[in-house]
Simulated assay, not measured.
Amino acid sequence: MSLMHRLNSLPRRRLLQVLGAGAVLAPLGACSENLATGRRQLVLVSDEMLAQLSHQAWLDLQAQTPRVEDERIQQRLGAIGRAIADASGLTNVNWEFVAFESAEVNAFVLPGGKVGFFRGLIDLAASDGEIAAVMGHEIGHVAARHAAERLSQQLAVSVGVRAAQVLLSEEMGEHADEAAAALGLGLMYGVVLPYSRQHELEADRLGVDVMRSAGYAPADAVSFWRRMSADNAAQPLAWLSTHPTNEERLVALEQLAGPVR
């Protein structure tokens, strides 16, 4: 039975007692300092649990999206990935690097070290260094444990909204659901999305550090994102987005690596 199902099944008074005592979240995890980012983060789930959850997603993606058949591309991506992974110092991760046949200009990493690059991004990159910049960014997410932190934040938000709904129902009756939904949106835009943007900038910073350690030029990260900016002019409003704007990202990267002339 899931945590949220257990919470929903508790009597109202007992739920408030449990939440008030902190008995729901405390046994699952705690705030701890992440050495990669230098800040404390709330982690309620283990890396092992996340790896198990991502395993099926990885299998599903490979079943739905064909791999690039050109083995030279697969070998190139794997060589860059292994160089960046070795430089990251993350020795307890079972890394796998796959190029997928899709025109989408994107890449991703799943907990457990499964890294996917779409053909569109590989074709857009002008050099191995630019691919290394993206690879460093993705591996930076793993070093920073961003997936565990995001899932933990969402779990905490869900628990908090459920508790608020119980409290509001005594005061607002039939309007409690609407009030709880508004609270949930406020938490999403005020907490979860800003943290996501912070994660992206942290991954950029860690990516620049690790690509430098692997022997790639950090300036390649700037040139890649300049190319991305020119290719992807339409962006959502920054406060509605899970990612920083291209301009914000470029300013941060130029401070880390120096501007590309």
Rank of each mutant, 00 (worst) to 15 (best):
M49S: 15
T91N: 11
W95M: 03
L7Q: 03
E48Y: 04
I80N: 01
R14D: 14
A85E: 06
S46M: 03
D47V: 08
E71F: 07
G120E: 02
I73R: 07
G78K: 06
D128S: 03
G120M: 01
I84R: 00
I80R: 02
A63C: 07
L53M: 15
G116S: 02
L124K: 03
E104Q: 13
P66Y: 07
F108K: 12
L15T: 04
C31T: 14
R12K: 15
F100V: 15
A23S: 13
G38W: 06
N106C: 05
F117Y: 07
V98R: 09
S32K: 15
A126I: 04
L59N: 08
L77Y: 06
R72K: 11
C31K: 14
A79Y: 08
R14Y: 14
I73K: 05
S102F: 03
A107T: 02
N106H: 04
S9R: 14
Q17S: 15
E71S: 11
L53H: 09
V68Q: 00
R67M: 11
W95T: 04
F97P: 05
D70K: 05
R67G: 12
S46K: 01
A26V: 07
F97T: 00
L10A: 04
E96A: 10
L16N: 07
G20P: 01
A79W: 11
V109R: 07
D123W: 06
G116P: 05
Q52P: 05
L15C: 04
I80G: 00
R13W: 13
P66K: 04
G29Y: 00
A85I: 05
L35R: 15
V105L: 10
E104C: 07
G112C: 03
A87R: 03
L10C: 00
D70H: 07
T65D: 08
L61W: 07
R14L: 15
N92W: 09
